[in-house]
Design a protein around this nucleic acid. Structure first.
Lengths: 337, 337
DNA sequence: ACCGGTTGCACAACCGGTTGCGAAGATAAT
DNA sequence: ATTATCTTCGCAACCGGTTGTGCAACCGGT
């Protein structure tokens, strides 16, 4: 049983005015007299009129909404990103439509369709780990649809991207572990389909090679979920020659790593050191607070939204060239190394 | 620089057909011949046609979108709720528009306007802790706009609500602490403007009275954010007669409580016991895993969405009476008590 | 040849807000 | 009094997809 919200026409009828006059009165158009404006506003209030944004955006293609697709809203990274995005979005007078792909390629494609079908003026995406085919994005980019990738960006596609310099940050993190005297350093990485996982693994390997440490697959575990991270880390800890330090590439993997360490009863950092990409809220949940690389969630959100608005607001004839923004993921030393 | 997406008219022109025929062909209407349907589908593919959902929803008021307003997407409770909601929403062929109020009354009102202005067919809300005036909700409910409150529900307003039986669950939690021999039980609660905080405090007090324990304000700390929870808990722990157990009413407060305990260097559960409303992912992040009351996030999400769809799909003449669904927050004993 | 029924499609209205254009009435300038 | 200008507002089109209605063309039966 829906409702009959008052329209602009209801106001017009009450005052024996035309639609256009009411519309202009509400938008404070100079053509309309002060008395009429006041009358219109009074009746609007009386009928508790609420403008139907869809009608206007439908006609003029300015929905004032931008869309966001994230793999999932859990833990602390993506919520931080969202806060960063919201800040910029609200500042520009826009609103944000949030969708989760739940790490599903199909859901991601469908979400993209939903956003386009709903006339959003631009889209921010962090791709799902299942996504190997990027044609659904390419279609939009080819049409100059404003689109910015962040964190989990895509390869082989000309587009705006915002991410931390993963290789360098990982290099620094592992270097730090070596500085602290760790000899056997493991890595708990995510799905290697993702560029971000590849790059963080690359930084890890580079650091080992740089310090003339051996690189062995035995110390590399790759996992999709915290459960799996816990399981694989536990297997690693149970080997004859377990690592004395672990680098976790995200808060999800870190969560699994820490669970395994807890269950194994190891002392951090005495028996095993731990470092990873973790937001402040997350790192301080542990005792002692973890040593981390700051994943820059908030800043990534801000930067992505800013890039997007540059594209949205670009009325110039010439196209903005595609840009990639790298943020520096700084090291924060806690008690876990 | 926007784009010119293909419309149904472009397809019609190419094939010398009318708009209506193309529309019906795409929707597989029986009136249209198989050959025409195939031709339409071929051209649609060729032009990479994407239907403009706004146009249709604008005309027929069936946007197939429902809106969600949460205070914030952090920690683990609301993400769980969102997963529960999504399950039901997708099953019904709808989509979900997520907005954060960021605990701001103004933002909440604005978000509500945005959702209505965007023709969502129903709204799910967990109110901000700043909200004391509920007239913005009342306007909608009076118009039979489908609206369901969950978790942080409202008082003095006839509406559908979904929440855990907070009084009973809290009663059980504190009872459990007493069973474990704790004598001085503190509570870290949230903003007492919220009914949920009031009820959880009520359950706490009832349990103490039930077991003939004194109820003193000295053991009651109320806080808005994890930072504040940490600070207030620390103050409590530093008093001459600190509690030997703390009941935290949410994962946010629990996070602060645990930080204070860590900083104070207390052993859990030897020196201090801890229990609270925490999702599984959160409770197992600690070592040992916490004793908790299951906050039923996923189930709350499911139940709220189901109530909402009952209202959305109700074409009957008579109105559905408002219902309140209570879920049981079961106790899960971990190592913290 | 006539009639009833079916098939396949076109026409036009509709949703609500915005805006270009035009026009009536008031006022000012000549 | 006539013309030019300004003020204030109405008319109608538009956005894109959906659907009620209508109507040719065709088919089969008598």
């Amino acid at each position: 049983m829906p409702n009959n919200p008052a329209t602009i026409l209801d106001i017009a009828k009450r005052l024996n005015l035309s639609k256009s006059t009411v519309s202009r009165a509400l938008r404070d158009h100079p053509d309309i007299s002060q008395t009429t404006k006041e009358a219109v506003r009074r009746v609007a209030e009386e009928l508790s009129y609420m403008p139907n944004a869809v009608a206007a955006s439908f006609r003029y293609k300015r929905s004032k909404v931008i869309g966001l697709i994230v793999p999932q809203i859990s833990y602390f990274f993506f919520p931080s990103v969202i806060r960063g995005i919201e800040e910029i979005v609200y500042k520009n007078g826009y609103n944000l439509l949030i969708l989760q792909s739940n790490e599903s390629f199909e859901r991601e494609k469908e979400n993209l369709n939903i956003l386009v079908a709903n006339n959003v003026e631009g889209i921010l995406v962090s791709v799902s780990r299942k996504t190997k085919d990027f044609s659904h994005f390419k279609h939009l980019i080819d049409r100059d649809y404003p689109l910015v990738f962040f964190d989990r960006v895509v390869t082989d596609l000309e587009a705006d991207c915002v991410l931390v310099d993963d290789v360098t940050a990982s290099f620094n993190a592992v270097n730090h572990l070596i500085d602290r005297g760790r000899k056997k350093i493991g890595i708990c990485t995510g799905n290697l389909n993702l560029l971000i996982s590849q790059n963080r693994l690359k930084g890890y390997k580079m650091a080992l090679q740089h310090r003339n440490y051996p690189v062995t697959d035995d110390y590399i575990v790759s996992c999709e979920w915290p459960d799996e991270a816990e399981k694989r880390t536990m297997e690693l800890l149970n080997t004859a020659n377990p690592p004395d330090a672990i680098f976790a590439i995200s808060d999800l993997t870190m969560s699994g790593v820490m669970k395994a360490i807890f269950r194994k009863g190891l002392k951090v950092p005495e028996q095993i050191a731990v470092i990873g990409f973790c937001e402040e809220t997350f790192r301080t949940m542990y005792n002692p607070p973890l040593s981390v690389i700051h994943p820059m969630g908030f800043e990534i959100g801000q930067a992505s939204a800013e890039l997007l608005f540059e594209r949205i607001n670009n009325n110039a004839r010439e196209k903005i060239p595609y840009r990639t923004v790298y943020l520096e993921g700084t090291l924060e030393i806690g008690g876990s190394t």
